[in-house]
Amino acid sequence: MTVPLGRTRLRPLRAGLAGAIAASAFLLVLVVAAVAPALLTGADPIQTQVLQALRAPSIEHPFGTDQTGRDVFARVVYGTRYSLAIGVLATTIAMTAGLLVGTLAGLAPRVIDGAISRVIEVLMSFPEFLLALLVIAILGPGPVSLVIAISLAAVPVYARVARVQTFTVRRSGYVRAALILGVPKWRSVLRHVVPNTLGPLLVMATIGFGTAIASAAGLSFLGLGPQPPTPGWGLILSEGRNFLGTAWWIAVFPGLVVTVTVISASVLGRFLRARGEGTAA
């Protein structure tokens, strides 16, 4: 759960570059795990082997085995697909909706803009996680509600940025110039406003993707997401919570993967933002 903290430029770009490369590499591994999990593990994530239950991590089972003898590493690898899909889907929906709403507000007359801004403010007054919880309260638990909840909860943040960006671009010299030159308003919007807004939004989305994955894991952990035996990360984690005293690895490793994913998304996002500012300024 990362919060956009404005311009972070604590060290030279080069130091950030190493971090960004490491982060990208990790995210790339995740993509591989999502697309072709069999490349990373030979074990079956669903097939139970009770006699192999609760084995500590070893070379054979890098993350150990769970209470029914399934390889935790294989479950995490195969679970990547679900967790990544939820993260990407929720972020894309949130960003698209946010872009739409924000741009409209930025271009609309003051009254409509005011109304939209109020709604965004009210929604932003709710913590994202709580908002997602409330959406699930209304829709009922399940994977579809999970995606809707996470994306809805993130829309206001994107909408706000899109609105401010639209404002800035709209008032900038070149758009005004274009308008004076007789370019239709909708065209200048498409040509200038949307592309200019998209950049910062994509950077935000990189960070937001991490947040979405963490939220999804949290909601699944509470039992409000996909059902077993789908090896989503949050679900594996929650299965391990009663074995903390005897088999810590079931809960610890999936959580570690979630954390590293969030960190990677965050590092990459910050790097992109820093670069964007560097070139734009």
């Binding site: 990362t2 991490g210 963490a214 391990g240 005293g245 809960a251 610890v252 959580g255």
Partner: peptide, 18 residues
Amino acid sequence: ELTAVSSPTFWTGLVLIA
């Protein structure tokens, strides 16, 4: 800091319990 901010709350809790 980055790790603290990025770790899912429930996981941190489970690790601390463990």
